[in-house]
Simulated assay, not measured.
Amino acid sequence: MSDSASKLRQLPRGRHRLSREQVAESQRERILIAMGEAMTDGGYVGTPVAAILKLAGVSRETFYELFRSKEDCFTAAFDRVSALLAARLQLTIAEIADADGVTRMDRILGDYFDHMIDDPASARLFLVEVYAVGPAAIEARMALQKRFVDVVTAMLGAETDEQRFACATLAAAIGAMTTGRIAADDFDGLRALKAPLIELARRSGAVYGTAFA
């Protein structure tokens, strides 16, 4: 387990001039990161709030001032990591809008996989542990998957309903393969998916969109 949760935005020792809001934001951020870090050992079900508090370096009182429950904290952590991933992919899509199909897939899939590998605790949170939390969390996961379908349709230039459906199936396959490799801590295997996925799209021609038509 990494110590990123304890290092991020640590408050200065002794007296400081931070406002109450800045202190609360620092504490909240550390708790959200600690949520993912703590679950790498025991999963969502096996992770008590005490383990999150220890990693985040905050009191139980502070935790319950910021979150109603462990599930509420998980929901906020899920929203945080989802927003970070979406922002990264949208920036990449904007940068390579005029690139050829191979370049688009290489950059977008590369950034998607790198994002998981750079922060595997967060990746495990929204890919693996989310299914142990409950119906509301699974609904949020499905909404995130729909956003990923939008990324894939943009990546491959889907225009027709048939192409968008094909992209949805491809996005589901990518998500499932990514989840399996993150669960197994198989980062080399995750990176190795990129080349065959690009080749699959290239061989499929216009099935997914205009990128390889």
Score class of each variant (00 low, 15 high):
Ile96Asn: 01
Asp119Ile: 12
Asp118Gln: 14
Gln90Thr: 06
Ile96Lys: 01
Ser122Thr: 06
Ala123Gln: 11
Arg107Cys: 11
Asp106Tyr: 07
Met105Phe: 05
Asp106Cys: 00
Ser122Ala: 15
Ile108Gly: 09
Gly101Lys: 01
Ile117Pro: 10
Ala99Phe: 08
Asp114Ala: 14
Glu95Ser: 14
Leu109Met: 06
Ile93Asn: 00
Ile108Val: 15
Ile108Glu: 01
Gln90Glu: 15
Asp111Cys: 10
Ile117Thr: 07
Ile93Leu: 15
Ile96Cys: 04
Leu125Arg: 09
Thr103Gly: 01
Val102Leu: 06
Phe126Lys: 01
Ala94His: 05
Asp106His: 12
Val128Asp: 09
Arg107Met: 07
Arg124Met: 04
Ile108Arg: 00
Arg107Asp: 05
Asp98Tyr: 09
Asp100Asn: 11
Ile117Tyr: 00
Glu95His: 06
Asp98His: 07
Glu95Gln: 13
Asp111His: 08
Ile93Pro: 00
Asp114Tyr: 13
Ile96Asp: 02
Met105Arg: 08
Asp100Ser: 06
Leu125Ile: 12
Arg124Lys: 14
Asp114Pro: 09
Leu127Thr: 09
Arg104Lys: 04
Ala99Glu: 13
Glu95Val: 07
Phe113Ser: 04
Met116Leu: 10
Gln90Trp: 04
Asp119Tyr: 13
Arg107Leu: 01
Phe126Gln: 07
Leu109Ile: 12
Glu95Leu: 10
Ile96Thr: 08
Asp106Arg: 11
Phe113Pro: 02
Gly101Gln: 02
Asp114Ser: 15
Ala123Leu: 11
Ile96His: 10
Leu127Ser: 03
Ser122Asn: 07
Ala123Glu: 11
Gly110Ile: 09
Met116Cys: 14
Asp111Gly: 07
Asp119Met: 03
Ala123Asp: 09
Arg124Val: 09
Asp106Phe: 04
Met116Asp: 11
Asp119Trp: 14
Ser122Asp: 12
Asp98Thr: 13
Arg104Ile: 05
Gly110Asn: 04
Asp111Val: 11
Ile108Phe: 04
Gly110Asp: 04
Ala97Asp: 08
Glu95Trp: 00
Ala121Glu: 01
Asp100Val: 05
Thr92Ile: 13
Ala94Trp: 01
Met105Gly: 15
Phe126Asn: 03
Ala121Asn: 10
Gly110Trp: 14
Tyr112Phe: 13
Phe126His: 10
Thr92Phe: 10
Asp106Met: 11
Phe126Pro: 08
Asp98Met: 11
Ile96Met: 01
Asp106Thr: 15
Leu125Ser: 10
Thr103Lys: 05
Leu91Asp: 15
Asp111Leu: 08
Ile96Pro: 03
Val128Gln: 04
Asp114Gly: 07
Asp118Lys: 10
Arg104Leu: 00
Gly101His: 07
Ile96Phe: 12
Asp100Ala: 08
Gly101Ala: 00
Arg107Gly: 04
Phe126Met: 15
Leu109Cys: 11
Arg104Phe: 00
Arg104Trp: 05
Leu127Val: 11
Ala99Arg: 02
Phe113His: 02
Leu127Glu: 06
Arg107Tyr: 02
Ile108Ser: 03
Ala99Trp: 00
Ala121Leu: 06
Thr92Asp: 14
Arg104Ser: 00
Arg104Glu: 03
Thr103Phe: 04
Ala123Ile: 11
Leu109Ala: 06
Val102Pro: 00
Leu127Asn: 03
Asp118Thr: 14
Tyr112Pro: 02
Phe113Tyr: 12
Ala97Cys: 02
Asp111Asn: 15
Val128Thr: 09
Ile117Cys: 03
